[in-house]
Design a protein around this nucleic acid. Structure first.
Length: 938
RNA sequence: GCCGGGAUGGCGAAACUGGCAAACGCAGCAGACUUAAAAUCUGCCGGCCGCGAGGUCUUGUGGGUUCGAUCCCCACUCCCGGCACCA
């Protein structure tokens, strides 16, 4: 048994004070896990006390022996694919797993009782760093470590009493699984969805690997897994082109997903509408003859490629016309084309490929030094929002294609190389960053947008009629200490220098032909103007970056690529898959993947020319594995394709559940993969899961994240051993709304335990029936129907806490009815049966036990969910609330169908109401059927 | 800074579409059972005033709408999450 294999749980249990503790021998000895047929042995000797460990072990064995939870492909009932995020096999099934998995199990069991053929599979996300770290630390092979953990966790998971269909289990580190990761990679490569590129990428110095942008978190840009701040490194890496789907990923039509997730993904994708505008380099100032390096100007701009420029309505999406001659043109992306006449400088990111060629000889030393210091800074230092903007002049000028202004070109590290085109136009009057930059370097700050409201205190340039007035005199020269590289072109006479930026919409001023145009319309007008003349175009830019999947680690899927001196990048032929991860690689804590030093893996012949070649030694991000695992569950040993197309009618996933922390990681990749699979032709739908529900995070009793180092880990085994799985399951659901999570409070579990004990005794010790009272019997029936209604609604909506509250209320009511002994025996029997059916999803073991002991046919989990009749659920009377001026004054029991006249009459007749209305004028009387009467007095 | 979500008894929480605030449970108090304890059962359990009947206040703060507001609107405080020099 797993609990005896785990020395830790024993240690902790020793100091634990359970009700059915070790010193308290079980009522029936030898029942626990004694044998597979224990559940089939009729219980002649009655267990009079509720003994969860004995009951639970027995039923778990029986269910497994019977294959009760195997989902059958040919079952005629409507299919319902219920998926819960599979766990990483860390070695211990902890409270978080219980919290993530037993409430969904409750819902899945409920759906099954509602008549669906429910597939509820489970598996293990088996590749990943911890296995490799354990290998380095303890000299255990990651495979052994992982498989041992899986064996252990599988046993622990079975104690949860879930209806997981273990016959479909998926383990991602097995070649039968990961060969399909490689197969997907090859399909993606064929279609340009997988590509290799050198880029400045995020590197975790602790995990010794690159990370995807999604896996870098927080203000300090730390590794999502280990918390270490990441650094940037220039590396050749493999990417999946998720940005191809940026626009489609913004569309959540038909998806029943939490708003929170949709919002997070929308923000993450970060769509911006604007324009790409080309500024020509002013030939007179450019060091063209000497400085141009054709290699640089011809090298692809990674930033531009990855910014997925799209042109709505344009005939061609090829932006070559804007950028063909990059040596002479700087492209910028702006969301404010309406401010184009306010440009007084340009800033290039230090990594921008034009920086070198634009730097004049006399500026060279300063620019090189600046770039060097920018490179030395960490990502966090560079992107700290409160950092002062810095930059250096390159010596070159660019020409504003709209105004003809000649503006200086700077290099500044506040411009990101990875967004837009890596260059910005500086509009200091209408952009806070540009304003700061201009102040610092003494650049002029001409106002080109005027606030629309003439009474606006900062409102300059709007006349009495609210129309804009020309602003030929708004530009101003440098502030004190300015180094002063002044834009040339138009006159910029002295005037008031704006004290603050104005970023809101307004009226375009000082903007040539656009003067007087509202800025909102001006955006389109400016773009149109530029498009007609070939130096601008409407552009949509996304913040989303392509998914970096290369990992410099051993324990992952080998990327099926060979590098040949003759043929370059050569994909491994599909017939050669899987590329097996070698088992005998040596683990040395050098921070490098063992694959790099494993010649028997690395050295191969080129599949095309036979020359000596090398394999890619990086492995794939483990998020690749989880991007499509739901398909593999359908046919986990199918060897012709990722999944057997004959099983398609399970798809897509009907209900998915998992932690909110995956909103912008797994859940983005998960959607991307399904869309890519659709485009490959494997499936005919574009979203992986119709409905999604997230659970919150269960915290330690101290309200902090559970962690071994904090010592606040709640070990489920302790509670399961003493209270039973049913109690622990229900308690986790009772704590509060499942989507909220929250601290685990160890004392609260007593209440659930008491409740299940009450259910036990209530069921097994029927009332002594006295004279049957018709009213009491009818009330019993009403309570039954009303409870079924509430519990059904609550389960439909994932409201496990209120479902359990209602069941407790019903149990309490039954307790009183039993005490009174005045209900009919048949009605009582129905009432108790219904109770067992309703607790079956949440507390499957005790329900099964009591169901059997009640003489019913096995299994309670194959019964239909109880139905209710709305009419029968309704009471014949209700409590009429009587208010005077909205204040409660009396409550009167009245028939449900009481009419207004009668209700009002009763209200006025009430002795409690009288004193509050006596001598006062009645101004109104309100009657709300089935609710109240409110008497309004003056 | 921007975008979400939230704030209700000693605690976790509930309250349908604007209609009895605090269901259900924990903790606490009192009682029954017991030689005693545990377990179990019963009752009480937001604040203030009152012997009581009852009155009065109360859902983060301040306003508003309404016969009536935990719920809708405005302003604010605090907490949590996401994003953040994204042009």
């Amino acid at each position: 048994m797993p609990q005896t294999e785990d020395p830790r749980s024993q240690d902790i249990a020793a100091g634990f004070n359970p009700r059915n503790g070790p010193s308290d021998p079980p009522a029936v000895a030898g029942g626990v896990g004694a044998g597979g047929d224990a559940g089939r042995t009729p219980l002649s000797n009655r267990i009079d006390r509720y003994d969860p460990p004995a009951i639970e072990a027995r039923w778990q064995q029986r269910w497994e022996d019977d294959g009760l939870y195997h989902a059958r492909d040919d079952d005629p009932r409507p299919k319902y694919y219920f998926l819960t995020m599979y766990p990483y096999p860390s070695g211990d099934l902890h409270t978080g797993h219980w919290y993530a998995e037993t409430p969904p199990d409750t819902k899945a069991r409920y759906m099954r009782m509602r008549g669906h053929n429910v597939l509820f599979p489970y598996g293990f996300d088996a590749f990943g760093l911890p296995a490799e770290n354990a290998a380095i630390r303890n000299n255990i092979h990651p495979f052994k470590w992982t498989m041992a953990n899986i064996d252990r966790m599988r046993q622990q998971a079975k104690r949860m009493g879930t209806m997981f269909d273990w016959s479909r289990e998926v383990i991602t580190c097995l070649p039968e699984y990961y060969r399909w990761n490689q197969w997907f990679f090859l399909q993606f490569y064929k279609r340009g969805l997988a590509y290799r590129q050198k880029a400045a990428v995020d590197w975790c110095p602790n995990c010794n690997t690159t990370l995807a942008r999604e896996q870098v978190w927080g203000e300090d840009r730390h590794c999502e897994r280990c918390g270490t701040p990441v650094i940037k490194r220039d590396l050749e890496q493999w990417f999946f082109r998720i940005t191809n789907y940026a626009e489609e990923l913004l569309n959540f039509d038909g998806l029943d997903w939490p708003e929170r997730v949709k919002t997070m993904q929308t923000n993450w994708i970060g769509r911006s509408e604007g324009a790409t505008i080309s500024f020509k380099i002013d030939a007179a100032s450019s060091p063209q003859a000497a400085g141009f390096n054709p290699q640089i100007s011809e090298s692809p701009l990674p930033l531009r490629e990855r910014a997925r420029v799209r042109v709505p309505g344009a005939a061609s999406s090829d932006d070559a016309s804007l950028t063909a001659d990059q040596s002479e043109v700087i492209s910028v992306f702006t969301t404010r084309p309406d401010t184009i006449y306010g440009v007084t400088f340009m800033v290039l990111a230090p990594e921008h490929p034009l920086v070198d060629s634009l730097t004049t000889p006399e500026r060279r030393a300063e620019v090189d030094a600046y770039i060097e210091q920018a490179r030395r800074q960490t990502e966090i230092e560079r992107t700290a929002a409160d950092k002062t903007k810095t930059g250096v002049f390159t010596g070159s000028y660019a020409v504003n294609p709209y105004s003809g202004d000649r503006v200086p070109v700077y290099v500044g590290d506040y411009v990101l190389a990875t967004y837009g085109s890596g260059a910005v136009m500086g509009v200091p009057a209408h952009d806070e960053r540009d304003f700061e930059f201009a102040r610092k370097y003494g650049l002029s700050i001409p106002v080109v947008i005027s606030p629309p409201d003439p009474r606006d205190p900062s409102g300059v340039g709007v006349d009495a009629e609210g129309r804009a007035t020309p602003h030929s005199d708004q530009s101003v020269a440098a502030g004190p200490g300015g180094v002063g590289v002044e834009a040339e072109g138009r006159a910029t006479p002295l005037s008031d220098q704006p004290e603050a930026v104005y970023i809101d919409p307004g009226i375009m001023v000082n903007s040539g032909p656009f003067d007087g145009t509202p800025s909102v319309e001006g955006k389109a007008a400016v773009i149109r103007h530029g498009e007609e003349r070939g130096f601008a175009r409407g552009t949509i830019t996304y913040r989303l970056r392509d998914w970096l999947i290369s990992r410099q680690r051993y324990w992952g899927t080998p990327i099926p690529i060979i590098y040949c001196p003759n043929d370059g990048i050569v994909p491994v032929p599909e017939s050669d898959l899987p590329v097996l991860l070698p088992e005998d690689s040596e683990f040395v804590p050098t921070g490098e993947s063992p694959l790099k030093r494993d010649d028997s893996f690395r050295l191969v012949k080129c599949p095309q020319c036979g020359a000596d070649a090398e394999r890619e030694t990086d492995t794939m991000d483990t998020f690749v594995d989880s991007s499509w695992y739901q398909y593999r569950y359908l046919s986990h040993d199918y060897d012709q394709a990722p999944f057997d197309p004959a099983k398609r009618d399970w798809l897509p996933v009907s209900q998915y559940t998992g932690g909110i922390e995956h909103a912008t990681m797994h859940l983005m990749y998960f959607r991307f993969f399904t869309k890519a699979m659709r485009d490959i032709g494997l499936i005919d739908f574009g979203e992986p899961a119709v409905k999604l529900n997230n659970q919150g995070i269960i915290l330690g009793p101290d309200g902090e994240k559970m962690s071994k180092s904090r010592g606040n880990v709640v070990n489920p085994d302790d509670y399961v051993n003493s209270y039973g799985a049913d109690t622990f399951r229900c308690y986790l659901m009772f704590i509060g709304p499942w989507s909220e999570g929250g601290p685990y409070r160890p004392d609260g579990i007593e209440g659930i335990s008491r409740w299940l004990n009450r259910v036990w005794h209530l069921t097994l010790e029927p009332p002594v029936f006295n004279d049957t009272d018709e009213d009491a019997t009818r009330e019993l029936q009403r309570q039954r129907h009303a409870t079924v209604r509430v519990v059904t609604d609550d389960l439909d909506e994932f409201r496990f806490n209120t479902m359990l509250a209602k069941l407790m209320e019903y149990t309490n009511y039954l307790g009183r009815a039993k005490e009174a002994g005045n209900v009919g025996p048949t009605a009582w029997q129905d009432a108790v049966e219904t109770l067992l059916l309703m607790i079956a999803p949440a507390a499957p073991h005790i329900a099964e036990e009591l169901w059997q002991r009640g003489g019913h046919a096995y299994s309670v989990h194959q019964q239909a969910w109880p139905t209710y009749d709305t009419a029968l659920a309704q009471s014949e009377t209700f409590t009429l609330v009587v208010q005077v001026n909205g204040k409660l004054r009396d409550r009167i029991d009245v028939p449900v169908d009481i009419n207004e006249a009668d209700a009002t009459a009763l209200a006025f007749a009430s002795p409690r109401v009288q004193p509050h209305i006596e001598g006062l004028t009645i101004s109104r009387v309100l009657f709300v059927p089935r609710r109240l009467v409110n008497i309004v007095v003056l």
